[in-house]
Design a protein around this nucleic acid. Structure first.
Lengths: 136, 136
DNA sequence: GTTCTTGCAAAATATTTGCAAGACG
DNA sequence: CGTCTTGCAAATATTTTGCAAGAAC
């Protein structure tokens, strides 16, 4: 079984040809992609199919959803193989010049102290700035 | 001079009647609002005026832009009176049930270590979950 | 055959701009 | 006057859904 089939299985997502295509495209990018970027990367697929696939992935916590930066919401594969525990959380960096979003591994998402009776489901930390390439 | 006129002056924004209306509405809400919410709060103003005012506020760092959560981008006044130093940064909490975004004061935004030659302009930390009211 | 998945078209949301009229100095 | 601001309408962009056809089991 392929890498992405395994990932889908781990998250309880049934593997189909198109889902595999989308998972592969996301994995190959190694940074979060917008729906538009995915559409451009996989010209054979309709955007509604991509949208619905991402919805399925989201429902099974198989993607991280990164909001912020222009061009809309971005998605990346969650490489965690545990459906409930996300050991792949990390900070993201949005370059305001080239409009790409990068993953910053190696830094924990800080813990948050919530007010009483607030409960947490997820946290996201996005840094804006200029990336190395655009700075040179 | 009124509180919000002072804030505009501190950020180098010329005060007009409409801008004052919008600043007041944002201040009164004490949580970040979407353009839609602002439109509903100030029925006398057209959304394009609100949009352009928010653009001006953004250009002068007079608002925080909070992305994430449904219903689109949210805006709140930046209460810092220093145009360049933002001493009003804080974490936000998005309630997935009532779709409101709250400010969590009293917790520093953690420092981020960027890779070499990456430069930072701003950082945002958004927590998703269920708020007190919705939990009860 | 029943259920899940897909593509096309179109609806629903959100954001942004053109342009002429008005306010301000 | 000349510049900045505003409202209305319309264009973009983005996300989401209806529905019928096709694939999977």
């Amino acid at each position: 079984m392929q890498r992405y089939e395994k990932l889908m299985e781990a998250h309880g997502v049934k593997s189909t040809a198109n889902r595999l295509l989308i998972a592969r495209a996301m994995g190959a990018a190694s940074r979060p992609l917008t729906m538009k970027e995915l559409e451009d990367a996989i010209v054979t697929l309709d955007k509604s199919s991509i949208f619905r696939t991402l919805t399925v992935f989201r429902e099974h916590n198989m993607v991280h959803v990164i909001e912020g930066g222009e061009g809309g919401v971005r998605y990346e594969l969650c490489q965690s193989h545990h459906p409930d525990i996300d050991d792949d959380e990390h900070i993201h960096f949005y370059c305001e010049r080239c409009h790409r979003t990068f993953c910053l591994y190696g830094q924990q998402l800080p813990n948050v102290v919530l007010p009483p009776h607030f409960t947490l489901t997820s946290a996201s930390f996005l840094v804006h700035g200029i990336c190395e390439e655009c700075n040179s």
